[in-house]
């Protein structure tokens, strides 16, 4: 397995490639992705918080926009926590697609906003259970924005957040059912 981080140097942000690689390697090992090549291609030109993923049988490509790894208190500086979370998010999404019962999930660009939210909740819940510090309320808010503001929606959020093993069919059905109840 090889793990590569690009670029080597940065024009717009004060990020460190070796530091990012150390965090990514640690996360890959923790998530059992040490048997596949991984490319981390940071898009430093963009301040957005997006993380683009591409998965083949032999290579996982994670392309975070620089905002996803940034310290929001100190613009353009790298945040260890946000880098860790971004690596975990990207790798969990890739692992779901490769080995986790998500083979039938639409491409990331084709996911509806509620579908993206339910999958993000599943991912972030697992990250929280790895004892990585994150603000759960932010993810509740995101789930509510996509499914509605009600106690029933919050109950579904809790269910997904605390799930360790789900398939795409299960998650997408939960999301669709929640939307039909709140409609």
């Amino acid at each position: 397995m090889t793990l590569t981080v690009t670029p080597d140097t940065y024009n717009f942000v004060a990020f460190d490639t070796a530091y990012t690689a150390r965090i990514a390697e640690h996360m890959a090992t923790q998530l059992g992705l040490d048997d596949i090549d991984i490319l981390i291609a940071i898009n430093e030109n963009s301040a957005l918080t997006r993380i683009d993923i591409d998965v083949t049988d032999s290579l996982i490509t994670i392309a975070p926009h620089s905002g996803a790894m940034e310290d929001t208190r100190r613009p353009r500086q790298q945040s260890e926590l946000n880098t860790t979370i971004t690596m975990a998010r990207g790798m969990l999404r890739a692992r779901d697609r490769l080995r986790g019962g998500f083979a039938d999930a639409p491409a990331d660009t084709e996911l509806s906003l509620p579908q993206a939210a339910v999958w993000d909740t599943y991912i972030m819940g697992r990250i929280a259970h790895m004892d990585i510090e994150l603000n759960k309320q932010a993810w509740i808010y995101n789930f509510r924005n996509r499914h509605g503001f009600s106690d029933a929606v919050d109950a579904v959020f809790e269910q997904v957040w605390n799930t360790a093993n789900a398939t795409w069919a299960e998650l997408s059905a939960l999301s669709a059912n929640t939307l039909s109840v709140t409609a």
Partner: peptide, 28 residues
């Protein structure tokens, strides 16, 4: 800050930068 915080040209046809829930990054 020289980074772009707007959507790329190719995406403008289907989205605007207006802060509405329709934006993928709306919550953030």
């Amino acid at each position: 800050d020289g980074r772009v915080a707007l959507l790329a040209d190719s995406e403008k046809s289907r989205r605007s930068n207006r802060l509405t829930p329709a934006r993928p990054d709306a919550s953030e």
